[in-house]
């Protein structure tokens, strides 16, 4: 369902007219991703793990057509966003880590109805789908203006929105960040159910328990490169999944490959734990 081939992302140093008009997070070139390759099959749940600023959100935004990669390409169900972005958007549901991304002066139901139509549903279908999804995420009886929602309710509403058009590929950027343990377990269960229905799920998270529960495979990214791509079972065989992942992250941060490879001079910046906030793709 999803193929990522050699994707690299360098946020350029803004020059000329762009530098005059726009403002980036840094004045330097930022290397966010370096030749990332991975696949997610239909019905598979793949977890994406890495330190803050490793390039996880950047990768999700590239897949969802919000960013244009510097090198490499992405295929979603065989469609390349460079040539047919609309076809890719028809096939994805996205949850961003930013919980502002809702209309706070609308109710949860009104938000879902609106986004349903924007995803191509008829008004009637959008209304029916919104009702069903609110039920599914446990918000049906608590519908009110979104500014009255807790963070957890907003996170659940964002997940419901991503499911509106029944996309075959779901991209989730820290979907349980604001959820309590019980609500997180509910979401993990929903993710498994979606995979059972054949939906491919690509899930970025810092919660290793969630990754272990919900995912079939794990991709570990540091410094914009894939350090590990394998079955969750390969790491949790001895019952120490979390420590196995942590040691992968520590090894990567101690001995990264040449971090400035391919970048000229001193005008460069590497996205890693130290440079939190320099990842312009991140929220």
């Amino acid at each position: 369902m999803l193929e990522v081939h050699g994707v690299g992302m360098v946020f350029p140093r803004l020059r000329g007219l762009m530098r005059l008009v726009a403002r980036a997070a840094t004045d330097h070139e930022v290397v966010a991703l370096r030749g990332v390759d991975l696949q997610v099959a239909s019905g598979e749940v793949v977890g994406l793990v890495g330190p803050n600023g490793a390039g996880k959100t950047t990768l999700l935004k590239i897949i969802s057509t919000l960013l244009q990669p510097t090198t490499g390409h992405v295929l979603v169900d065989g469609h390349d966003p460079r040539h047919d972005a609309r076809a890719v958007r028809d096939r994805i549901g996205l949850v961003l880590a930013d919980d502002r991304a809702l209309y706070w002066r609308l109710t949860g139901r009104e938000n879902l109805e609106f986004f349903g139509v924007m995803h191509g549903l008829t008004r009637r279908d959008a209304r029916a789908r919104a009702g069903a999804l609110l039920d599914e995420v446990g918000l049906a009886s608590r519908d009110k203006l979104v500014f009255g929602y807790s963070s957890g309710m907003r996170a659940r509403l964002s997940l419901a929105r991503a499911l509106l058009a029944r996309p075959p590929l779901l991209l989730l950027d820290e979907p349980t960040r604001a959820l309590d343990p019980i609500a997180s377990a509910v979401v993990a269960g929903m993710i498994r159910d979606m995979a059972a229905e054949g939906i491919a799920v690509f899930l970025s998270s810092h919660r290793l328990d969630e990754i272990e529960q919900a995912c079939d495979r794990i991709v570990v990214v540091t410094d914009g490169s894939v350090r590990f791509d394998g079955a969750v079972a390969d790491l949790s065989g001895d019952g120490r999944f979390a420590s196995a992942v942590r040691s992968l992250l520590e090894v990567s941060s101690v001995a990264p490959a040449d971090p400035f490879d391919g970048v000229d001079g001193d005008d460069r910046d590497v996205v890693d734990d130290v440079e939190v906030g320099t990842d312009r793709g991140g929220s």
């Binding site: 057509t65 919000l66 609309r86 996205l94 930013d98 991304a101 809702l102 986004f115 924007m118 929105r161």
Partner: peptide, 14 residues
């Protein structure tokens, strides 16, 4: 400001 621009641009709406 609302953070909805990106979410809108991910929909297939021209």
């Amino acid at each position: 400001t609302l953070g909805t621009l990106e979410v809108l641009l991910v929909t297939p709406t021209p």
